[in-house]
Design a protein around this nucleic acid. Sequence first.
DNA 1: TCCAGATCGGAAAACGCTTTCCAATCACGG
DNA 2: CCGTGATTGGAAAGCGTTTTCCGATCTGGA
Lengths: 361, 361
Amino acid sequence: MLASVNEWTSVRGQAQDNRQSGSATLQEVARAAGVSLATASRAFNGSATRTVRPDLRERVLAAATALNYTPNANAQAMARGTTNLVGLVVHDIADPFFSAIAAGVMRAADEHGLIVTMGSTQRDPAREVEYVAALRQQRARVLILAGSRFADGETSERLGVEVAAFQAAGGQVAAISQQKLPVNTVVVGNRSGAAGLATTLHGLGYRSFAVLAGPPELLTARDRLAGFRAGLAKVGAELPAGRVVAGEFTRDGGYAAMSELLHRGTDATCVFAVNDVMAVGAMAALRDHGVRLPEEMAVAGFDDIVTLRDVTPALTTVRVPLEDLGVWALRLAVQPPADKPRTQRIRGEVVIRESTPDRSS
Amino acid sequence: MLASVNEWTSVRGQAQDNRQSGSATLQEVARAAGVSLATASRAFNGSATRTVRPDLRERVLAAATALNYTPNANAQAMARGTTNLVGLVVHDIADPFFSAIAAGVMRAADEHGLIVTMGSTQRDPAREVEYVAALRQQRARVLILAGSRFADGETSERLGVEVAAFQAAGGQVAAISQQKLPVNTVVVGNRSGAAGLATTLHGLGYRSFAVLAGPPELLTARDRLAGFRAGLAKVGAELPAGRVVAGEFTRDGGYAAMSELLHRGTDATCVFAVNDVMAVGAMAALRDHGVRLPEEMAVAGFDDIVTLRDVTPALTTVRVPLEDLGVWALRLAVQPPADKPRTQRIRGEVVIRESTPDRSS
DNA sequence: TCCAGATCGGAAAACGCTTTCCAATCACGG
DNA sequence: CCGTGATTGGAAAGCGTTTTCCGATCTGGA
């Protein structure tokens, strides 16, 4: 007798603890509507093969509203075996480059009724791996890797392993601007854009260039440098040794790299920073060193970050439709999985502004 | 006989369909380690009261690694009755104001082992409500509302209802810079910051002001305007009628508002835009209209957006530690729920730069 | 050597939902 | 009026965990 009471109370106790108190369950809705659990479920999901009588459906919906019922997404995920979660991994959400991409991903996700979760790795490859692992644990349906590193062997391999595990668990993957992983990829025309920029600048009369390159292990940075070189080569110009300074892919990195270049002393008349954020840092450095802009030194960037459209002098750059990058990445990812990873190529467009005035005349 | 075969195959079929193929289950790990399901679970969660023998624990962990096992977060959520999801709702993730806050939230969430999901409402109050509903459905543990609208009655009320439902379901809530909802709030010293800016500008010798205000229904914008007015009043100055122009809370809104002001004609010598992004738009408008900066018109903003630190002339503004706002919001939210909503006050700091040179001499 | 007490493993229930399978109900033509 | 087929409601299994309760095994003391 006592035992039985004990059992009862303890079971009750557990039930209460576990319950998200206040959230009605489908079972309760069904009871309120006077139908079975199955019918209530069908009233919501309205399968094509099995219909529920209109009046019953009405009753269920009304009961749901009355009880302020919302389906428990976790329970649905369990029963259905799939979620509607999109995981987006970026280097730094406060960097306008990534927040623009994020905006695109979220817009596209919205169209598909998906929810976006984000992780900001602060450019730490280890955290990138961690985050992918967390998303696998969440059984996210889609993983989007933005700005993945072209890192040293070990971490890069661990990322590959995690991504493979994610896919093995049934997840879809897309990456932006990488080439290592065998996944759907949106590739930015970094080489062609930078090459186009180089020839255009040459056409404007510039002959002596320097480049503020990003970290050597960052693929995007490498490609832009290589493209710029190739573009110069095409018009018979070149980038002498000592004219390339590596730096962080940030505003401060650009500032530091430009300072370094000035410190070394240079006769370049035009400097190409491999992204806009670095270019802005470079402009600040030039100003701080009393170099007149753009008369004594012209500056060009890459990306055409919207937030930076109003710097003075207005920055010559290569416009990349960043938000579209995000949109395309999600679209690639949600397509029915193919045998081979797909690729979507997006080209940049050279935009000449005041920071590189015409010198040809 | 046939029926039984049918049953078997269909059950099998369902099992296969529902399974996230490739993801090992705890059951499988347990079997591989030669222990029971319960023991395997305990090996991972290591409750204080119930321990598992070290050698068994080792076996389980090894089996898990071998099978590449990850716990299913959805199943855990069901069993535990709670998730580790944080929902963050912002107006526009591409706006540096919000991406800075997001960075802060993510940093703090990371410390607590929480995962952040984000929704960008594009300043549409209806989508804000939708997003909160989605988070309730996910049974998110924490909801953070950044830049909530001080909207018209109806939508605002619907938001209130949704938020209440979220709380009723056991969720914790924090908001940034709002006063309507009875939830934990991080309040920014908008009034005091703007007032400080006004008196400082007055001290620099400015006497004739204009304000590019945000949308009237946005609480933050109203407070900054009111604070600026109050600051002027304190030093015996005022803001005549016709010197306040409303506009969107964006770069283009600032551009439009400034254009409008110039179009009307004004003898103001200093214009205060209620945020930095608008201020930058205003500077662009001034430039396009041939007004010299800062000689003919001084400009001040609010927020001290990092990405905009390098505009020229450098922008006078009120520095708000945006990332800290996010950190504090999360901290408030994860504190054990109190009977009364808590408030964390964060003050801004006036930063004078070149856009408002000293006129007093 | 044996027993009390402590320790630890395992069966089973519970979380909230979806979906299958079967049975009951209904309309209808012969 | 009855049998047939189409339609729809409901019971139950299953998704992958956590946690309780009970029973089995071990330790050490007399």
